[in-house]
Amino acid sequence: MPAKCDIAFSLNGVKRELTVPAGMSALEMLRDRLGLTGTKYGCGEGECGACTILVDGSTVNSCLMFAADCDGRELVTIEGVAVSAAGERLRDAFVANGAVQCGFCTPGLMVQASHLIERHPGADEATIRRGIEGNLCRCTGYRKIIDAVAAAAKEKSHE
């Protein structure tokens, strides 16, 4: 019998309890079991960043994380980031700076950028570029994403 794991964790600030197969990824759990489709499947190999989520305050590729490993941890997805004050500020910066085109990579970038700004308020261009190197975007050429993150980072540093 394939192993099932009972796990309990915090998801966007709400306690969740779930039974998941041991081999399931956190990405599958979020999308297929919990209906949180803001986190995207882009490659399944940790190369594109579309599935980026926050786990205990750090970003990870949820396609590389076992759902079972979420036990006892604090997860925040784009759905959680989007409704935080910092997330709203970042969203407004993405919108105003034209950082969104097809939008498929955007949730992952939003989560990664929120983490980057948290760690580096007022981050400079080079730090931002390195900070989002794990997020692929095929539409924008990144320029406007970098501008958006810089604008939000600057606001954060003025807080």
Binding site: G46, G49, T59, Q112, H115, E133, G134, N135
Partner: peptide, 9 residues
């Protein structure tokens, strides 16, 4: 080493 997301894990 890889990307921030991978370095974190």
């Amino acid at each position: 080493f890889a990307s921030d997301q991978i370095r974190n894990a």
